[in-house]
Design a protein around this nucleic acid. Structure first.
Lengths: 148, 148
DNA sequence: TTCTCAGATGCAAGTGAATTGCAGCTGCTT
DNA sequence: AAGCAGCTGCAATTCACTTGCATCTGAGAA
């Protein structure tokens, strides 16, 4: 059964990160995976309200998953935390993301590239090592076509 | 006297936006102009602590200045509002910011540029209009040298 | 310069999402 | 089957803003 297989896969992912595969945690991860855009804590809690899980539990689940790297936690600028499942072929830094500052939607921008000029002219010092080593995540923030 | 002249200039800017040039407001704007990176409400309040201005006042000043367009109010992703003076040559999107995901420090990266290739190969559709029109703000997120 | 008042401030109280403490459960390892 | 480190629910707390209100004050009018 496909669904069952999927759940087992999620359990495996969670356990591989050293976390327990508890029902609420799996449900949260499953929900985020099924969603095509980032969800706020409130969104997640509401969608899982039928289970009567505590908001603190949901929040801890989201935080744990984020720390484990299974989920990305960002604030698109409206002071609301949003969570988005990260798939394996989708590591941070692999490619830039476009974040809509209005609706929070995140799109991938594979065809954009960041050019770093090693700067002698920069007002103060050089860019951080992380930038040169490309160990960074690039967020391009603006209004998406729908919100424009 | 240069400093005095500068203060008068700031007063003029503030008044031109329909705001009163009060001491605290001018001090806030002056501080942000002198700072080379965005400051949080707390940063500003601490730096101006010698004046014993109320935090609510500082906050209202920051908000007012932001609404007037003299200051930019952003959240780099760590859930802390940050304020940055906008000079004329410093419009939104003019340059990217490097954000340390550990300590939250924000640096400006004037020597980085965003290259957008018009993509026929992108998995789904084209990049948002905002990207092409450069009406975006770029955040480069990673560990700063100090936190690395 | 003095007058006047909308706008600004200080103080204190309110708000609400995020976080934490703790006692009682429960995956999961042995 | 047993034990415990990790989770959960509940409640309380924290903390960063936000607001209400009485009191000042910048700046245009007289």
């Amino acid at each position: 059964m496909a669904v069952r297989q999927n759940l087992d896969e999620l359990r495996g992912l969670v356990r591989a990160k050293g976390l327990r595969a508890t029902p609420s945690r799996i449900a949260v991860l499953e929900l985020l995976r099924a969603s095509d855009s980032p969800m706020s804590h409130g969104d997640v809690a509401d969608r899982l309200a039928t289970q009567a899980w505590d908001r603190a539990t949901i929040y801890r689940n989201l935080t744990d998953l984020a720390e484990a790297g299974l989920v990305r936690r960002t604030d698109v600028g409206d002071h609301v935390w949003r969570f988005e499942a990260m798939s394996d072929d989708h590591e941070a830094g692999a490619h830039p993301h476009f974040v809509c500052t209005e609706c929070g939607t995140v799109e991938c921008l594979p065809e954009i590239e960041l050019a770093v000029r090693s700067s002698r002219t920069a007002s103060r010092g050089k860019p951080p090592r992380a930038v040169k080593q490309r160990q960074v995540e690039v967020h391009v923030r603006g209004l998406c076509d729908a919100c424009q």
